[in-house]
């Protein structure tokens, strides 16, 4: 029996370094997929020696991927462990690997954005900026050094953590753990995709559906208010009683759609894209088409 191929610390470090360039080929079609594949190449090169295996490995990693660039590291770690087991003959299929990737990327992006972009960077940035505004060269130096120490340490240790956790998942071949992980990952993946479609796909319509003049007594009659602070008091009281600020009730198309469920247009758009993709329409055509639609709809005051 052949020796088990393992990824050494050096291999894992090579992957970690390459993951620095994760977003390099960020694109509107599959986002970080190119950078993801680029990062995994040192590992794939070692694990797979025949051409067929290499082609399969590269193709399965060219699928859609997008998360926070630093939080990709634990996902990379788990993927390395799964690929290692697969190369050694474990029955881990493409769906498992893709399920783990998709299942982890959404929640992790949700961790990375607030932690790095809205906490660490503003704090270090404000520190560096205040020194810099006073003409102190230490400002940018502190920002640069502190940020990169935190970043590299985080990326390396979370990748190692993911790698070790991933090995444990794959080791337990006797039980049904792997099947559970596969199914669990696709459940989580679909759940997160549902919420991402709602949160991140933005389609907003501007047209007004109706513009109705309200009956007397349904709106605040500004001319009849007492002057000064008393008038403000009266106006606020009336508003609290449910009177409208304007004498017209304007209903926009977007408000009508939102009262069905917010994000409905985004959902329909996503379903339309799925349908077009199944009809073998090129994603690039869809993307360019959407940009054209955006500009035309804006010019026509629809969006």
């Amino acid at each position: 029996m052949a020796d088990k191929i393992t990824l050494t610390k050096k291999d894992r470090w090579a992957v970690c370094w390459r993951s620095t360039f994760l977003q390099g080929s960020w694109n509107y079609e599959r986002m970080q997929n190119g950078g993801w594949t680029y990062a995994l190449i040192p590992a794939l090169k070692k694990l797979y020696t025949t051409k067929e295996d290499r082609v399969l490995a590269l193709k399965r990693h060219m699928e859609f991927f997008n998360t926070h660039p630093y939080l990709a590291s634990p996902v990379i770690g788990v993927t390395l462990a799964l690929e290692e087991e697969r190369a050694n003959g474990a029955p881990i299929d493409d769906v498992t690997i893709q399920g783990v990737k998709v299942g982890m990327m959404g929640p992790l992006a949700g961790v990375g954005d607030p932690v790095f972009w809205f906490t660490v960077r503003p704090i270090l940035g404000a520190l560096g900026a205040s020194l810099a505004m006073a003409g102190n060269i230490m400002g940018p130096i502190i920002f640069f050094v502190a940020w990169n120490i935190i970043r590299v340490a985080f990326m390396w240790y979370t990748q190692e953590f993911g790698y070790k956790a991933g090995s444990r998942i794959a080791d337990d071949m006797s039980g049904s753990l792997l099947q559970d992980v596969t199914k669990g990952a696709s459940i989580l993946g679909m759940f997160i995709l549902g919420s991402l479609v709602n949160r991140w796909v933005s389609v907003k319509f501007t047209p007004t559906v109706s513009d109705v003049k309200l009956a007397d007594g349904a709106f605040i009659d500004w001319d009849k208010l007492p002057s000064g602070a008393k008038g403000i008091h009266e106006a606020l009281t009336q508003q609290a009683n449910g009177l409208s600020l304007e004498n017209h009730k304007v209903t926009t198309l977007q408000a009508n759609l939102d009262s069905l469920i917010p994000g409905l247009a985004a959902l329909l758009l996503t379903l339309a894209c799925m349908w077009l993709l199944k009809k073998k329409v090129s994603p690039i055509v869809i993307i360019l088409g959407l940009f054209v639609v955006g500009i035309l709809a804006h010019l026509a005051n629809l969006m």
Binding site: E29, Q98, S202, T270, L290
Partner: peptide, 29 residues
């Protein structure tokens, strides 16, 4: 207009993943 288009093109990426993962079992999620 480009900003509006940019908000919509994200859907294409999601559509590709959904096409790959979706089964009757996981659609409810």
């Amino acid at each position: 207009g480009l900003g509006i288009g940019g908000g919509m093109v994200v859907a294409v990426g999601y559509a590709m993943v959904i096409n790959m993962m979706a089964t009757a079992e996981v659609w409810p999620f």
